[in-house]
Computed example of a mutant assay.
Amino acid sequence: MTKPRVAVIGCGGTISSISTHALDVLDYTEFGRKMSVGEALAMVPEIGQFVEPALVPYREVGSSAIGPQDWLHLAETIARMIAQDEGIAGFVILHGTATIEETAFFLNLVLKTDKPVVLVGAQRPMNALSSDAPMNLVGAMRTAIHPDARGKGVLVTLNDEIHAARDVTKTSTYRLQTFRSPDFGLLGHIDGDAVRFYREPLRKHTLATPFHLDAVRDLPRVDIVYAYAGADEVAIKAFRAAGARGLVSGAFAPGLPTPAQKRALEIAAAEGVVVVQASRAGSGRVARRRYLLEKGMVGSDNLPPHKARILLMLALTITNDPDAIQEMFETY
């Protein structure tokens, strides 16, 4: 029987790493090496029991080196492959865990397909003792060809769990169960007998968003201002001098910057910089309370600062109106 074809895009990351010895789960990032996507898949021949992989080499880097230009390249690659080859059942992207949730959320907002797109990483290198990389790879392939994965937006799978790109975040440096969806939980499980989904995302994504690749080739600069006790306005002034069109305030819960930051953000908003108020807490909403409304600022809903930045970057390709951008934060 012919197996479904899955396009497998290699970006590097721990899942594509080889450490200097089997007990190295710490120093491999600097002293190990990154494999090509073909090398990585060759180490897990069990993948062939489920799919026929179509290899798409891209980068072999840690994901701290992945940024907006890579997001655009990945989105364009997937869009082109869909247009050229209708027979592809889905996509799996091998990616480092440091920024996997950001890449996934960007793709979730711009891709125009209902085919499964699954990002997968690992916490231990491929050759480490008790590595999670091989089983994570197999799980991603099984998810990408599962009929229930279709139409659920971009997915992130690790540790036998399936998460929505919008909700998932890395919560631990080394633990295998690092990825969580804090407010609403995971979408499903990847078990030995079956892939099972138990819920689906309600926020609009992929085909239902207004963000199109032909309009987002030059993403505007948006920076994040982190709150800490005694923080002043220096970072805000520096970001504005660098040309930021938007600022995300990663403030104290439930969305309160320091007094100095507050004054500087008010000035920025009054002068046309779009300011989104988020929280550094890691879960929970930042509502557009009366103060934010009167100052022309946006509440991030329950998006953390790094994901609020992505949505704001895309929103600014369409409008500078805080009211319209607020609606986007309540929709996507």
Rank of each mutant, 00 (worst) to 15 (best):
E200Q: 14
K204R: 13
N108A: 00
R217F: 03
V274D: 04
V298F: 02
A269R: 14
L219C: 06
G282Q: 07
M81L: 15
A260N: 09
G139T: 11
L72W: 08
I318F: 09
L247Y: 00
A229K: 14
T143M: 08
P210F: 03
Q326S: 04
S19Q: 09
L41C: 00
K237N: 15
G282E: 04
G139R: 07
A133W: 12
R289A: 14
A238T: 15
P134I: 09
P45K: 09
A264R: 01
R59F: 07
E271W: 03
R124P: 14
W71L: 06
A144N: 09
H95K: 01
E327L: 12
A83F: 11
G38R: 13
N127V: 13
A164G: 12
K295M: 11
P116A: 15
E86H: 10
A133Q: 11
C11H: 06
L158F: 11
L202H: 13
P304D: 13
I93E: 13
E102W: 03
T20M: 10
P57Q: 00
T331D: 00
D183H: 09
I93R: 13
P147R: 03
E233A: 15
N108E: 04
A241W: 09
A54E: 12
A128Q: 00
A215P: 05
H21T: 06
T20R: 14
L187M: 06
G255K: 10
V154Y: 01
K34V: 15
L316N: 03
A140N: 09
L107A: 10
L312W: 01
V120E: 03
L158W: 01
V273I: 12
T99H: 12
P125Q: 09
K170Y: 06
G62V: 05
Q261D: 07
K262C: 15
D321L: 10
K170W: 06
R5G: 01
M328A: 10
V138L: 06
I318E: 14
V44T: 14
S283K: 05
I236C: 02
E330D: 15
P259N: 02
A253I: 13
V276M: 01
T171S: 12
Q261A: 03
V8H: 07
L314M: 02
R245P: 02
Y198K: 11
P322Q: 01
E327F: 11
A208K: 11
L109A: 03
E271F: 05
V61Y: 10
T209N: 05
S36W: 10
P305H: 00
M126Y: 01
K112Y: 14
V216E: 02
D323H: 14
I318P: 09
A244H: 03
G90Q: 08
S283G: 05
M328N: 06
T209Q: 07
A144F: 01
I47S: 05
A227Q: 11
P305C: 04
Q49T: 12
P305W: 00
V154S: 00
T206N: 10
R80Y: 07
Q49L: 12
A315F: 04
L311D: 06
P259A: 03
A104Y: 05
K204G: 07
